[in-house]
Design a binder for these strands. Structure first.
Length: 460
RNA sequence: GGCGGCAUAGCCAAGUGGUAAGGCAGAGGUCUGCAAAACCUCCACUCUCCGGUUCAAAUCCGGAUGCCGCCUCCA
């Protein structure tokens, strides 16, 4: 069985094979450094991480690039609003992104290129587009002439004659030949000019547009065509259409072979964006949710469907993880028991069921169902003392295998703290002595330390 | 107006022609000093609606409805 992925480009599930047998090139639209990331961004990154980890699990070497947009009007505005210099403002937001990334258990990818470090490359791309007749200058801004690019609109299925012009932008701000053309390099405003926030080119002082930044960085780090481009559905048009146009006009090659789009995060039935407060990863971490809980919550819905943001959903994710943790903690405490003869079969079912689920377009729900079925079976056997202590490492190692992809298990020893250990021993002694009041008091004390006590039957 | 996505139990969610996975919540039980956890049992004759094809449809076809996203510098 091979890996099948839903390719937005063809609107079908296709068998995935990389261009080179041993490695996969991935490009993900990364964050814009104008604000701390919100859960909508986080979902995209958790999804990209799932793709990255799963392909890695299948044995591919991964070349993954995630750009960081640090040239953007939002950034200049944000810096102004805080009174910080744009450089400090960007540095602060990138540091916050790093922290969020670690909290969410996202693997470090190969490159996180900054737009500001590659402006020359972007200008060169535009020079070539002009030379090839795909771009034109108008009042010191450079635009892409989409009438020259026949494939424009194929990814999103958009019909350019029928789109509503000016629905989200004020066309009076531009001097394009055709209002459907998109910007490559935009002349800077006077305020930006005064602060030195611009790139000097033969045409004038400009900023690179978002699609130019993304397309240039993808090609620079991954070549003319990468295997998979990962992003959110809301970026399909115009961003991705524009990226494709830039790369296609330049090389006559597709920018990416597979386009994977995850759906958004909804709050009160609407898309989360910067305007919705309290939905940043930082904010949720501060209000007591763990990065692992956020990760699981974002991960456990199939990527084609929206994730709903609410305290109830996060609580559900927390309780679901507790079930997983309970199983692992229970395993660690097994001391006596008869060996379970069918363990090999059970662990094989876990592994193969998990693989089959994920290779069908990353069917995470089915993969989790396999895991929970095994968890139930392990719990049943453990409570009946039907697992031998020497079988535990094999079970844990099987869970670690699937967790290399999921990153949601918690394998740390239950109580390493000598203080906790001592309290547990004291409580056990109190229970032996049938001093229930003291035992309960000790249990409360342990709970304060964040330790949940699960008694075994007293064996006096 | 155009393009795209989604619709399965109280909630989340898998399932693309043959008796509806899994999780959360809930009910009863076992175990326990009491709890908690765990385990057992129960919890959709039904898959937004209306037609059609078929021996057989959540699944295929036609139509309708509802919700969401995007429409070219918000990023």
């Amino acid at each position: 069985m091979g890996l099948a992925l839903f390719n937005t480009r063809t609107h079908t599930k296709e068998n995935f094979e990389p261009q080179r047998a041993d490695r996969v090139t991935l490009y993900t639209n990364g964050p814009t450094a104008h604000a701390p990331i919100h859960v909508g961004d986080a979902r995209r990154f958790v999804f990209a991480d799932l793709v990255d980890r799963y392909l890695s699990y299948r044995g591919f070497k991964i070349q993954h690039v995630m750009n960081i947009t640090d040239l953007d009007e939002k950034i200049f505005h944000g810096a102004d609003a805080t009174g910080m210099s744009p450089a400090d403002f960007v540095a602060r937001n990138i540091a916050a992104f790093e922290a969020d990334r670690l909290a969410l258990g996202l693997r470090t990818v190969e490159h996180y290129p900054l737009s500001s470090a590659h402006v020359d490359d972007m200008v060169q791309v535009v020079q070539q587009l002009v030379a090839k007749g795909f771009a034109y200058e108008k009042l010191r801004s450079l635009y892409f002439d989409i009438s020259r690019f026949d494939e424009y609109g194929h990814l999103s299925g958009i019909d350019l004659d029928k789109i509503k012009l000016g629905a989200t932008v004020d066309l009076d701000d531009y001097e394009k030949d055709n209002p459907r053309d998109f910007t490559l390099l935009k002349r800077v405003k006077l305020s930006e000019l005064k602060k030195g926030l611009y790139t000097k080119t033969a045409w004038g002082n400009v900023h690179p547009s978002w699609p130019l930044q993304c397309a240039t960085l993808a090609m620079k780090y991954l070549g003319e065509t990468c295997d998979i481009h990962i992003a959110g559905r809301e970026l399909l048009f115009p961003l991705h259409e524009n990226e494709i146009a830039i790369a296609g006009a330049l090389n006559k090659k597709p920018l990416a072979r597979f386009w994977l789009h995850c759906d958004r995060v909804l709050a009160d039935g609407k898309k989360i964006d910067d305007k919705v407060g309290g939905a940043t990863v930082q904010g949720l971490l501060e209000s007591g949710w763990s990065g692992r809980e956020l990760r699981f919550w974002l991960l456990c819905t199939h990527y084609h469907k929206p994730v709903v943001f609410s305290a109830e959903r996060l609580g559900e994710a927390r309780r679901t993880l507790q079930r997983l943790d309970g199983c692992i903690a229970g395993l660690a405490q097994i001391q006596t028991g008869t060996a379970f003869k069918e363990l090999d079969q059970l662990l094989y079912d876990l592994k193969s069921g998990f693989n089959e689920a994920l290779e069908d377009d990353l069917n995470i729900s089915a993969a989790l169902a396999v895991i929970f079925k095994v968890v139930k079976e392990i719990n049943r056997l453990a409570s009946g003392h039907q697992i031998a202590a020497d079988q535990v490492p094999a079970i844990v190692s099987a869970f670690k295998g699937v967790d290399a992809v999921l990153g949601i298990f918690h394998f740390e020893p239950v109580h390493t703290d000598p203080n906790v250990r001592q309290l547990l021993d004291q409580r056990q002694a109190a229970r032996q002595a049938k001093d229930w009041a003291k035992a309960d008091a000790l249990r409360h004390e342990l709970e304060k330390l964040g330790v949940a006590v699960r008694d075994e039957k007293l064996t006096t």
